[in-house]
Simulated scan of single mutants.
Amino acid sequence: MTADAWEWDPLLYSGSAAYYPRGRLAYPESLAEALAVELGLDGTGRLLDVGCGPGSLTLPLAGLVEQAVGLDADQGMIDEAGRLAAAAGIANTRWLRMRAEDLPAGLGTFRLVTFAQSFHWMDRSQVAAAVRGMLDANGACAHVHATTHQGIEGDTALPHPRPPHAAIAELVREYLGPVRRAGRSVLPRGTVSGESEIYRAAGFTGPRRIEIPGQVVTRLTDEIVAATFSLSSSTPHLFGDRRTEFEADLRRILLDTSPSGLFSEQMREIAVDIWRP
């Protein structure tokens, strides 16, 4: 099955929600600040975060709007988002288990709609058209390009060893096979790209791009393990009764790489494309 022919699988991220907060790097405050300046966010209007996961972007932006609505097809993600919102005392959020393809679903209009590492899992043409019709007159759609589970390779000296991403990927292949898994399906060519053509075909104009520099971060062994289980290609359920065995092998690789349990990474820059209806 090719990426273009891939069909939604409700088990895509099954069991991974609890690993997100620890395994994925939080979006920096500078991202919310840049969006606030660019879009004039002042505590009014509504936000719709489509494919919100556990609220990774919804929660940092919630203070900039009157109401933040997070939508995701995975119940575990919605439950984790609600838990994190309650723990942080963020009360202006609403969480909906729903596929993006079900929009507009009577949700009304929004000042800002966001897609953060989620658009490629959807029927993009259908969703983009629906979202355009849900924007206020001066509304905008923000497409966030980011990689929050791992950093980039390079020769820059870092205070601790880099996580052994190639060795981790090889271990996953040993357990799950040579073709990338995605729920009960496979993605031999990876996820789709070409977002700009989709947005323009739906009637959007732009984009205007905002860029946030990547940071050097220090990570712990538990965080690298959580990052691995947060991926659609290595969610816990894919390993079946070998999950514990896989984790033991993963931790052994990490210990061999950094006996201290500390790792350093240079994270990729975050780019946000702002599209207007």
Score class of each variant (00 low, 15 high):
Gln117Tyr: 15
Tyr19Phe: 14
Val217Ala: 03
Leu187Phe: 06
Asp49Trp: 14
Asp123Cys: 08
Glu29Cys: 10
Val216Leu: 06
Asp256Trp: 06
Gly214Pro: 13
Gly206Ser: 03
Trp8Glu: 02
Gly139Asp: 01
Arg209Val: 15
Ala5Trp: 04
Val127Ile: 03
Asp72Gln: 10
Ser232His: 04
Ala157Gly: 08
Val69Arg: 01
Arg251Pro: 15
Arg173Lys: 03
Gly139Cys: 03
His143Gly: 14
Ala87Ser: 11
Ala62Trp: 14
Glu33Tyr: 02
Ala81Ser: 05
Pro54Cys: 13
Ala34Leu: 12
Thr257Met: 03
Val179His: 01
Glu197Ala: 14
Ile210Cys: 06
Ile168Asn: 03
Ala129Phe: 00
Pro28Gly: 05
Thr221Leu: 13
Asp4Thr: 13
Gly190Gln: 01
Ile224Cys: 02
Ala5Gly: 10
Leu25Lys: 11
Asn138Thr: 12
Glu245Cys: 14
Asp74Cys: 09
Pro178Lys: 01
Ala88Lys: 08
Asn138Ile: 10
Trp95His: 05
Thr218Ala: 00
Thr148Phe: 12
Val225Phe: 02
Gly190Thr: 03
Arg97Thr: 10
Cys141Glu: 15
Val172Gly: 04
Glu197Thr: 15
Arg162Thr: 00
Ala201Gly: 07
Leu112Thr: 05
Asp222His: 08
Arg111Gln: 06
Met122His: 10
Pro213Trp: 00
Ser14Gly: 12
Tyr19His: 12
Leu71Tyr: 14
Phe204Trp: 08
Ala166Trp: 05
Glu265Tyr: 03
Leu71Lys: 07
Gly43Tyr: 12
Pro159Ala: 02
Leu255Arg: 15
Gly23Phe: 07
Arg94Ala: 08
Phe204Ile: 09
Trp95Asn: 02
Gln126Pro: 02
Ser14Met: 11
